[in-house]
Design a protein around this nucleic acid. Structure first.
Length: 215
DNA sequence: CACCAGGCAAGTA
DNA sequence: TACTTGCATGGT
């Protein structure tokens, strides 16, 4: 198991190279992007981020002061704009209440308690919380997404019915505890998923890890 | 035209 | 506990 998980990583890295995630300039932009990319293509998130920057809303202070309707209007291209505007507000309110609006203060807290509190915010689920922890705060947590589940269950490395936490544990237990490694691995999985492991291509015949398939 | 995208919460049985 | 549904735009 440990060998296979590391072998898949090496194959992906050799095929695709460094992905240089997260594609954002500041810690705050990572957090906003993590919320906006929920069930949404990154190209649409980029349009929304562009609008936020245009409207001078791409800072913690300005977005905290903004009205929901103005946020919703700016992030329209990312889809689900009404609910995402509320979710962003929920998270910003939480950061204000809990850390006095300081991301530096937030970054100094320990990973587990941060994760637990992020999950208590309405609109922040496990993948969004872990993406924020890993890509905004450089904490060593492994991010699991739909591609991870699809690809690694096809490889018979995780059970098809495994929960988020179960899948995450498999990666944490079989890789060195390293934020840069988790950063790169998740990014490579998304690259593989986008290019080859679409829902309608269940066999993934051209993909760089096809010879890892069992059965 | 159909299907999908770096989810999550709320509702139902 | 285990499904199902709403949320919504833009690319292929």
């Amino acid at each position: 198991m440990k060998k296979r998980i590391n072998r898949v990583y090496n194959k992906l890295y050799r095929s695709f190279g460094r992905q240089n995630w997260w594609p954002a300039k500041t810690r705050f932009e990572v957090i906003v992007g993590a919320m906006l990319t929920q069930n949404t293509s990154w190209s649409n998130v980029e349009k929304a981020i562009h609008n936020l920057r245009r409207d001078k809303l791409l800072t913690l202070r300005s977005l905290s002061k903004a009205q929901i309707k103005d946020i919703a209007s700016a992030i329209k291209p990312s889809g689900y704009f009404n609910i995402k505007a509320k979710r962003l507000k929920n998270l910003l309110n939480y950061i204000k209440e809990e850390y006095n609006g300081s991301l530096a203060k937030m970054a100094s807290k320990d990973t587990l308690s941060l994760r637990e509190k992020l999950l208590s915010v309405n609109g922040v689920g496990p993948e969004t919380a872990d993406s924020i922890l890993l890509y905004a705060f450089n904490k060593p947590v492994f991010v699991v997404d739909a591609y991870t589940k699809r690809i690694f269950s096809r490889l018979n490395i995780v059970p098809a019915n495994a929960t988020y936490e179960e899948i995450q544990k498999i990666f944490l237990n079989n890789l060195d505890k390293s934020a840069p490694l988790y950063n790169e691995y998740h990014a490579l999985i998304v690259k593989l998923g986008k290019d080859y492991c679409h829902k309608s291509k269940p066999n993934c015949n051209q993909c760089p890890v096809k010879n890892e398939h069992r059965s």
